[in-house]
Design a protein around this nucleic acid. Structure first.
Lengths: 152, 152
DNA sequence: CGCATTAGTCAACCGAATTGACCATATCAG
DNA sequence: CTGATATGGTCAATTCGGTTGACTAATGCG
């Protein structure tokens, strides 16, 4: 088969767009704060670790600590995230999800599941699983953790 | 298999990042103008049609006509694109690739091929083909042509 | 102890988009 | 044919999300 070169990245960009748009539509319909993908990735990051600082988040997102700090401030203002003093380091603040934050993540997971299910219903769950593996393999092989950043 | 919900979009974003970064590295190494993804998509769009106006491009990219106009102006300044008067519509200008623009596209195709080959060498060409189909199926089923826009 | 490093903030700036106002040409209804 | 409306394009101001740079305060290693 002859793939047109450059088509895969284009399709990837579009697929990402479609999925996030679907999620975003779901969120907006609920009259929620204007949460952006970066916020979602922040939630997911904080779920995993309970000792993360703003600098850690910045590193994870692939942005400067100032930018990460802004994001955190926003989320804190909306009550999704809280900053607690670090137990041992007087300079640092430990980030954590509030109850509201955790509730939101569960809700978002449901929406993601729906988006993924839509895709699965088109190509089949097994192929979606394989696609998942292939994406993972490519990303892992390419330095493991690509910056998440704005994409153009 | 239990996929973690929300992981696929994350991986998609990362995969896109990785591919475009690889391409960008190739371009930059050649001391070329700072071409961005939007420029690439513009080239690809103009290759297909020879009667496109700035408004058409804006629609394709999913941005305002002002934004598209800036992109075109930039590309025109670098000699990749030219604006000719529209044969029948006195307001409009027809966009077209210059020889330099077409040469560039061929070159970019080569770089894309390389990026895709890298992926194929990891997961196998047949799986990449299938992945390509699956992306296409999803995008087509979701309104066919998602806006290309900034992705977060 | 002293000095380089690090977490975080404040402020200025930047790039790439947006909105809004506008002009000139096209198109359509009467 | 003419007048109203829609459309392609430009100019200017603003917005948004990020960056760079300078700084403070706490850390931790020699």
């Amino acid at each position: 088969m002859t793939r047109r070169p450059g088509e895969i990245p284009l399709l990837i960009a579009m697929a990402f767009r479609v999925m996030t748009d679907q999620l975003h539509a779901g969120i907006e319909a609920e009259g929620r704060e204007p949460l952006r993908p970066a916020h979602g990735y922040t939630f997911r990051f904080l779920l995993g670790r309970d000792d993360a600082t703003t600098v850690d988040l910045a590193d994870h997102l692939g942005v400067t600590k100032q930018a990460a700090s802004k994001i955190v401030a926003e989320l804190e203002g909306w009550g999704y995230v809280e900053r607690r003093p670090h137990p041992t380091d007087g300079r640092a603040r430990v980030l954590g999800l509030t109850a509201k934050g955790r509730t939101y993540v569960e809700h978002a997971d449901e929406l993601w599941r729906q988006a993924e299910d839509r895709w699965a219903s088109i190509i089949g769950a097994d192929r979606l699983d394989r696609l998942h593996e292939d994406l993972r393999a490519f990303v892992d092989a390419s330095g493991g953790r690509a910056a998440l950043r704005p994409v153009w």
